[in-house]
């Protein structure tokens, strides 16, 4: 079993025009920076991207919007991105906005082998249009389907050669969920170690969900909103 690949370019082999991709991260936190750069180099087009956010104008998925590689976004929140809003309002880009918990749980369902979930989020709103509603007890729930993703691109802090992953702080967010939902999952890590070096009790995502892994380079890890207390 050899999951280790040399580079992001090798890792994304097999991704073609029109595919459905899942990308980890929340805002710019924990996004697969190397994978996104490789997708831009490769120039694949007409992609559907499932990701909680769409980056900012000049970073993250925002870069793939600049190059017009994305035809559809499935996200919960896409503020902070003027180019996104422009393409959406002009009709160039299709977008499915879905509640964040619904997004997370539809990914979880995919990774847990369940075809659908019931959630109260969106009942009585336009999110419920055309969806099956089921009453449990005294409350209504929407039936929401598990995602099907061709390739998932995610970022972890540490990983081993078997694909076992450890995430760091709030950069975990959607990463393990996007990973679990991918038919093929590509993990980039800040530090890649031989199997056996990570304590099995400390692993957040078992390598069975990861098919290709590589050590990423030159992480910028850009901060969207730098907020600090002064030292005085």
């Amino acid at each position: 079993m050899n999951k280790v690949v040399k580079s992001a370019d090798e890792a994304i082999e097999g991704i073609t025009d029109g595919m459905i991709l899942g990308l980890g991260g929340f805002g710019l936190c924990g996004i697969p920076e190397n994978g996104i750069s490789a997708l831009i180099r490769k120039g694949v087009k007409n992609l559907t991207c499932i990701s909680n956010n769409a980056g900012v104008d000049d970073f993250g998925i925002g870069l793939m919007l600049q190059t017009r590689q994305v035809s559809k976004m499935i996200s919960s929140y896409v503020g902070e991105n003027a180019e996104f809003e422009r393409q959406l309002l002009s009709g160039e880009l299709q977008v499915d906005l879905i509640p964040q918990g619904t997004l997370a749980t539809r990914l979880l369902a995919a990774g847990y082998g369940m075809p659908a979930i019931f959630t109260p989020a969106g009942v009585g709103t336009e999110v419920a249009e055309g969806k099956e509603i089921r009453r449990f007890g005294d409350k209504d729930y929407l039936l929401e389907h598990a995602f099907e993703i061709d390739f998932s691109l995610i970022k972890a802090w540490k990983g081993d050669t078997q694909g076992n992953l450890i995430f760091r702080k709030t950069s975990r967010n959607f990463n393990p969920l996007i990973a679990m939902a991918g038919k093929i999952t590509i993990a980039e890590v800040e530090e890649l170690v031989p199997a056996g070096e990570l304590d099995p009790d400390h692993i957040h995502l078992p390598g069975i969900y990861v098919h290709r892994i590589f050590e990423g380079k030159n992480y910028e890890k850009r901060i969207e909103q730098r907020t600090v207390r002064s030292r005085s």
Binding site: S76, Y77, E85, L89, L97, P99, Q100, G101, A121, T125
Partner: peptide, 10 residues
């Protein structure tokens, strides 16, 4: 304004 609901609906 089309920014999305984030976690508000949940």
């Amino acid at each position: 304004m089309v920014k999305g609901m984030g976690g508000a609906m949940d």
